[in-house]
Design a protein around this nucleic acid. Structure first.
Length: 532
RNA sequence: GGGCCUGUAGCUCAGUCAGGUAGAGCGUCGGACUUUUAAUCCGAUGGUCGCGGGUUCGAACCCCGUCGGGCCCGCCA
């Protein structure tokens, strides 16, 4: 059974109505790792609906979290805002300077700045979660009940965290982080409490008090999370493996949730996505691929397929080079099969059956449109990559596909694919081995590998090409003519031609590529090969 | 120290929850196709399931141990 269906089954045991939560802190650029969080949630929600349950996907925006430090993309002006809540400070402009103007006139915050493009990427990929901004939840008092329970009995919370996480909390620890006189969550000492007020002294020596029912501060993460489960009625939540460890925040959260008076959600721990050959993604190391960037290269259904087809417990090594080609072709292969018919075969072994069933589920989840199965475009990624390189004009691509694949009209899907393909080809991720490279000098190694008959083609080839009018058809005819004159088969002509023009044994169909090259340059190349 | 995830064919992985002949795709090799858009079709190749014990008629799967990789036990999500 597919992992999403296993989750749906678990949810069904618990009830009929479900809210599946995801949550991210908008502290910087989002990356494809964050996409796994959201897509995992989305796929659970879809599987639950498929199983007949009511399921909603929500996205908790953790904009009540503080700015941790001045990140490399921020100016020093942010120094004074470290410790301040992400939903309460201005967004950086293109120079990393705080944009106070937009902050004051539009209320445009740091959190909004990073969230907006991510949401746009999500919409493209077919995910439209209900947003739950956390800071707003605090300000409207949604945390009040949980905060009261925690502050009334801090020793209970302390005991849970110390016992389960195995670490000792400082003596002055208190289950509420107030905002200080400057708006920071850092460096305060709580000096007293009587509901709803927490009294404090900050690092500037100022004393004051916070109303916990008005969001003048926040719960520490380990309480914040279970509190949200309660008032949002969360029944399921996927989270990164960091939260999932024994003694981690889910472990303490489970017990704290029950103390608050509700059952914790059904968990699902997922592994990280790293970039091929570069280790874990890290914004500071600059080795990220943003979800927006990824979607400029990868069709949405293929990105979804990657997540759907990989069990959450498996780490993903994302490769925007050859790995992407293989992934896409893998997707196409599955999509073009009639799995339903294959499953009807009674002689399948249990393993084969499981494999087909899982692939079918993954394929369904890959479609950005929940109501429509992703379909095969019947044009392989490889092939499109080739056409996009050879044909500069989209129309020429469609003309070619009309001939080779019987495509009367390019679908929207194919139009999208071609657009992304062109972006990919222009990007540094496009793999060298996929590039169509016409040689400027003879490749002596490739020439040496030719048989005497094949070498004998070069002279006639030169003559035939010189005489031709340099169109695709005339070049094809010239190749044939070379075969006749040299008295060899076409196979030898192609072997020789690929050695000359591409330094390879085989390659994509030559004539259309040569037609886009300069005739004299190609003739010189053949000549140079004759002399080599 | 405590714990989680992970290790199966050259590569990516499925199969482990419910023990029953070791699986898929890619790659590689061979054949077919007398113009080949890295094509397509057919066939073949390929694994002491990290290692060592145990339970069992039978273990990739369950138990114990061990080794390698990743991660957590921070007011970090």
């Amino acid at each position: 059974m597919h992992w999403s269906d296993v989750m749906a089954q678990r949810l069904a045991e618990r009830g009929n109505d479900h809210i599946i939560a995801t949550g991210i802190t908008p502290s910087g650029e989002f990356h494809i790792g964050h996409l796994r969080e959201i897509l995992t949630g989305d796929m659970i929600a879809r599987a639950a609906r498929k199983a007949g349950l009511n399921a909603t996907l929500v996205f908790v925006v953790d904009n009540a979290d503080p700015l941790r430090k001045v990140y490399p993309f921020l100016s020093q002006a942010y120094e004074s805002m470290v410790g301040h809540q992400l939903g309460a400070i201005p967004a950086p402009d293109e120079n990393g300077e705080p944009d106070w103007d937009r902050f004051h006139t539009e209320g445009w915050t740091y959190g909004d700045h990073f969230l907006k493009p991510f949401l746009a990427a999500l919409a493209q990929i077919g995910v439209r979660p209900t947003l739950l901004p956390n800071l707003e939840a605090y300000r409207s008092g949604k945390f009040a009940d949980a905060a009261k329970k925690a502050c009334d009995e801090p020793e209970v919370i302390r005991e849970i965290i110390e016992r389960i996480s195995g670490r000792e909390l400082p003596d002055q620890w208190f289950p509420w982080q107030p905002l200080d006189s400057q708006g920071s969550l850092d460096g305060l000492t709580v000096t007293g409490y009587e509901f709803p007020t927490v009294h404090w002294t900050d690092r500037h020596g100022v004393s004051g008090s916070s109303d916990i029912s008005k969001g003048e501060g926040k719960l520490p993460w380990r309480l914040d999370w279970p509190a949200k489960w309660g008032f949002n009625n969360i029944t399921c939540e996927p989270f990164g493996k960091d939260h999932g460890a024994a003694g981690g925040s889910y472990d303490t959260g489970k017990e704290i949730a029950r103390f608050f008076g509700h059952e914790p959600p059904v968990p699902l721990t997922y592994e990280w996505i790293s970039l091929k050959g570069q280790g874990a993604m890290s914004s500071s190391a600059g080795n990220t691929i943003g979800p927006i960037e990824a979607l400029e290269l990868v069709p949405p259904e293929i990105l979804r397929f990657l997540i759907a087809d990989t069990k959450p417990s498996k780490a993903i090594d994302f490769d925007a080079g050859m790995g992407l080609v293989n992934l896409a072709d893998d997707f196409e292969r599955w999509a073009s099969r009639d799995l339903e018919a294959e499953l009807a075969d009674e002689s399948l072994s249990r393993r084969q059956r499981v494999q087909l069933e899982d692939a079918m589920a993954a394929l369904a989840l890959a479609s950005p449109d929940e109501t429509n199965q992703a379909s095969s475009t019947s044009v392989s990624f490889r092939h499109l990559a080739l056409l996009a390189q050879i044909k500069t004009d989209d129309e020429q691509v469609w003309t070619s596909l009309a001939k080779s694949h019987n495509l009367s009209q390019p679908t929207d899907e194919l139009n999208d694919r071609l657009r992304r393909m062109r972006t990919w080809i222009a990007s540094p991720h496009f793999p060298e081995e996929m590039k169509v490279n016409i040689r400027s000098h003879p490749d002596t190694g490739a020439l040496a590998a030719l048989s005497p008959e094949q070498k004998g083609v070069l002279g006639p080839l030169h003559d035939a090409l010189r005489a031709c009018s340099w169109t695709t058809d005339s070049i094809t005819a010239a190749l044939k003519e070379a075969a006749e004159r040299a008295e060899v088969g076409m196979r030898d002509v192609y072997r020789a031609s690929y050695a000359v023009f591409m330094g390879a044994e085989r390659g994509p169909r030559l004539a259309p590529i040569l037609a886009t090259c300069d005739q004299d340059a190609m003739l010189d190349l053949v000549n140079a090969c004759l002399e080599a």
